[in-house]
Structures are given as structure tokens and as C-alpha cells.
Computed example of a mutant assay.
Amino acid sequence: MNASILIVEDEEPLQVLLSYNFEAEGFRARSAMNGDEVEVLVEEERPDLIILDWMLPGLSGIELCRRLRSRSETRDIPIIMLTARGEEQERVRGLATGADDYVVKPFSVPELVARVRTVLRRSNPEIVADVLRAGELQVDLRTRRVTRNGRDIPLSPTEFKLLEHLLRNAGRVYSREQLLNAVWGRDIYIDERTVDVHVGRLRNVLNRGKEADPIRTVRGVGYSFDERFT
């Protein structure tokens, strides 16, 4: 199962931006606008990591971090604090309260994603593994090598990213538009049929002989990686 991230941020544009980018990276993202919502959301589903804004309406991020660390059931959830406070004493205060890392606004989203992966590797190494496996299919994210039954599968950068996105989210059905946004980017304006072409190419190199096709076409909707294959 993909790592779940709870994003606690009251600036809606930033919250949407982070949710989109983490989902594009294969995480499951949920969001909260204030600290009072967090305890309910954590009870519904324990996240693998919390990204927590320091300045929140109502219950502050620093107080929420303190509360989470004081309860046995939430004590071990990794927390990364987001804040505009860059002074050393504030960073020390945030870390002393129990945060695992501290990111000062404005920040680079790719850097934040990298920090999340680093923290998760310490707390739950298996959930951010560098190698994705599904049946006899193996995708090495470090070397960008794909093999099936020991056979090397050469993929273009776009095909690799498409396969990685579908495999990370096995069972979830994506429309062509969603795949365009996740793989090509929101600012790229190309025909949705481009997705069909790349899925066709991906299938051609993935499947040989009687090998089962792991990519499922959902008529009238889009595509998914068949979770039965995993």
C-alpha cells in the first residue's frame, strides 16, 4: 500500500498544490485546514506521516504536535513542520516539541517530497522502497531498469513514468486527463489520445507470448494497473 500523507495547511492553494504533487509521486494524500480536524482524521485512518503548518487557525501546529506526541497511539507518527519562522530558536523549538523535520516557507516542493521520503525511510523503510514489484514484474526506481521474468524491458522516460504511476496506484482507475496531468504535467497541452498511444507501446514491450497484461482498460473511463496482478 502507498504511504499516506496528512497535509495540515490552512492556505488552500498551497494545500491543493501539495496534495496534487504528493499524489503524482504515488502517495495517498488527505488534507485538513485546521488543527481541530486532525485528531478526528487520525482516528479514522492513521497516516504514515503528517505535514503540519505551524500557524493554523484555532489549535496551533506546535500545540497539535505536542498533543500527538503525548498520546501513545499517535506518538510515533512522523511529523514535518512547515513554517515561515526561520529563526534558529524557532527551529529548535519545533524539533524539541517532537517534529522529525522542519521546512521553512517558501520551499521547493521536490525538496519537501525528498524530505518526506527520507523521514519515511527511517520510520517505515518498506513503504518507500526503491524497487516496485508486481508478480514477475520489477521496477527499479534508482536505476530505472524494468524487468519481467528476468527479461529487460526498455522503456522511454515517458513510458517509465506512466508505468510507475499506474503501478504505485494499482487498482485505481485513471482517466486520460488524469494521466496526462500526472505524467506529462498540467501545463502541457496535448491530445488525450496520446495516452492511448503510450499505453499501447507500454503493453507491446511488457507482454510477451502468454504473459498476462497487467494494464486494464476500463471502457469509457481510462486505465489502471490490475491489482490482481500484484
Results as ranks from 00 to 15, higher is better:
4 S>M: 11
10 D>L: 04
14 L>T: 07
16 V>Q: 10
20 Y>G: 04
23 E>M: 03
24 A>Y: 12
28 R>F: 00
29 A>M: 03
31 S>A: 08
36 D>Y: 12
37 E>M: 12
37 E>D: 14
38 V>R: 12
39 E>W: 08
41 L>S: 04
42 V>A: 08
43 E>W: 03
44 E>D: 13
52 L>N: 08
55 M>L: 11
56 L>A: 03
62 I>H: 05
62 I>Y: 04
62 I>K: 03
66 R>N: 08
66 R>W: 10
71 R>E: 11
75 R>K: 15
80 I>H: 09
85 R>W: 03
85 R>F: 02
91 R>W: 00
93 R>T: 01
97 T>D: 00
97 T>W: 00
103 V>K: 05
105 K>M: 06
107 F>C: 06
112 L>G: 04
113 V>C: 05
117 R>C: 09
119 V>S: 15
121 R>W: 12
123 S>Q: 12
144 R>T: 12
148 R>T: 04
159 E>G: 14
162 L>P: 06
166 L>K: 09
169 N>K: 05
178 Q>H: 07
180 L>S: 10
186 R>A: 09
186 R>G: 13
190 I>K: 04
196 D>Q: 07
201 R>E: 11
201 R>Y: 13
202 L>M: 09
204 N>A: 15
205 V>L: 05
209 G>E: 11
212 A>K: 14
213 D>F: 05
213 D>S: 14
215 I>N: 05
218 V>N: 06
227 E>F: 07
227 E>R: 13
